[in-house]
């Protein structure tokens, strides 16, 4: 692995733009799904809280039983995890549970002015539900997140570059956060890929530390994803699936190379950031509701 040693472009070298300043706040609440082995709901809740949005963690069975209502929310989040232990394909069994029990509510939810975010296992769930790419609002499976090229779970920090200019990527020059998945190898047909490109739906790509393309090269592209794709939106841009985990690196001290960056900044007389640049991602989502 080649890391830039002195380059200004070193991923965690800067803080997010809204660092320490008061973020925007919204009264809207997010619903963060849990249950059956989803496991990142608490840090995802924390990320939205810091970005200025409250949330409820809701077990899928409470939605199915009608104890909670999707229609009370405008942001739906499927966080990371290992729902059903990745059995029958990562995200597949949880997506089946959603489709078999909550489909009508979900379709109505999507028709309103709402956003949906799926991170890691959440992205796998969205892909199996067909919420991305959802060309022409047809919720069919057009993409797959296959087992990683190396055949095992891979946990490491990756650098991400926004590809499209949309509500999710505003003011983000790059992100630097962990991946941790066994099945994140993005695949789709050549025709689908063309459509994703022409409609600017590819939102984040894995890249090298100096932001040049990963070109499929390990470990920059950690899993073998087609075109280094790390995240895509739905055609209407309101649903985002993202493999890496910005919520796991909210603070400067969460970043892989922070001890090095800290020494560097100290010697340059710079002030050390508290937050990491990844928080901009969550602030963008919250801003949508402000």
């Amino acid at each position: 692995m080649k890391m830039t040693s002195n380059s200004e472009k070193s991923p965690s070298g800067r803080a997010g733009k809204n660092d320490i300043s008061n973020p925007a706040k919204t009264d809207e609440k997010a619903i963060i799904m849990s249950g059956y082995g989803i496991n990142s709901e608490m840090e995802t809740q924390e990320a939205f809280k810091r970005a200025g949005m409250g949330s409820d963690i809701v077990h899928i069975n409470d939605l199915i039983a009608g104890r909670k209502k999707l229609s009370d929310y405008r942001l739906l989040v499927f966080p990371g995890g290992f729902s059903y232990g990745d059995d029958t394909g990562a995200g597949n069994a949880y997506a089946n549970r959603v489709r078999n029990n909550l489909w009508d509510d979900l379709e109505k939810f999507l028709d309103n002015d709402t956003l949906v975010l799926g991170i890691c296992n959440g992205f796998q769930i969205l892909a199996n539900l067909g919420l991305v790419p959802a060309f022409n609002k047809k919720y069919e499976r057009d993409i797959a997140l296959m087992p990683n090229r190396k055949g095992v779970l891979e946990c490491r920090f990756v650098t991400l570059k926004p590809v499209s200019d949309n509500l999710w990527t505003r003011d983000i020059e790059w992100m630097y956060c962990p991946i941790s998945h066994g099945e994140g190898n993005f695949f789709c047909s050549p025709e689908t890929l063309v459509r994703l490109k022409t409609k600017n739906m590819i939102t984040f790509q894995y890249c090298q530390d100096n932001l040049s393309p990963a070109n499929g090269e390990y470990p920059y592209n950690p899993n073998g994803s087609t075109e280094d794709i790390a995240g895509i939106t739905s055609e209407n841009g309101k649903v985002l699936g993202l493999m890496p985990h910005p919520e796991r690196a909210m603070n400067f001290t969460n970043l892989y190379d922070w001890p090095y960056q800290k020494e560097k900044m100290k010697r340059e007389g710079k002030k050390l950031p508290q937050e990491s640049l990844n928080m901009q991602f969550f602030k963008n989502i919250v801003n949508y509701f402000c």
């Binding site: 692995m1 890391m3 040693s5 496991n39 990142s40 608490m42 840090e43 924390e46 990320a47 990371g80 095992v152 779970l153 891979e154 946990c155 962990p178 941790s180 985990h245 919520e247 796991r248 690196a249 909210m250 001290t253 969460n254 892989y256 190379d257 922070w258 001890p259 090095y260």
Partner: peptide
């Protein structure tokens, strides 16, 4: 191959440095 970042508290991980 061991997830060491879940729960969002990673500070110094199992491998360090460039």
């Amino acid at each position: 191959q061991y997830d060491h970042t879940v729960q969002g508290g990673h500070v110094l991980g199992p491998v360090q440095g460039k």
